[in-house]
Amino acid sequence: MTTYAMVIDTRTCIGCGDCVVACKNENKVPAGLNRDWVVEATRGEYPNLETEFRSERCNHCGHATCVTNCPTGASHYWKDTNIVLVAAEKCTGCKACIAACPYDARLIMHPEGYVDKCTFCHHRVDRGLDPACVSTCPTRCMHFGILDDRDSIVSRLLRERRYKTLMPETGNDPHVYYLL
């Protein structure tokens, strides 16, 4: 299995939201729906505050509870990778996957009614390109690559920098990493 990872540097992310716009353009996400979003997290007590920006999306989990809970096999792993996709032609819109996602990263595509989410732009990955959000980022804070490849940019960054994933305690094995 090939494990793809996205690594986002919270020190250089400025929360501009270009990743959100790029995703909507690339994937023709309808108005009012979002596959990714930016969170501003502030910690501490005034005046000792610390702020980080995080571009968030589906974590393309190694143990994706949305996949295990899907009753029709519509939610699945793409080509023996950790990229989680939804096959619209198999989706009944039962919403079990939405309930199963601890990151609330899924949405209902209206008016059709199937469930949709970030795909890591697998159509671009298939052509050797980065996801649209990564390509667009003006501060180059987003990186994408194969985790199993020691020489990839994501492996190198995770070796050299401190990082975190979101709520690893869910046991879902998320693959979006945030550099601290």
Partner: peptide
């Protein structure tokens, strides 16, 4: 204190502001 605020739009129907997929 930890405060996490969405700085870009996220208002997916039945998912935001809190889950309401099943009634």
């Amino acid at each position: 204190m930890i405060e996490e605020v969405l700085v870009t739009a996220r208002y997916n129907p039945k998912v935001d502001p809190s889950l309401g997929i099943w009634t």
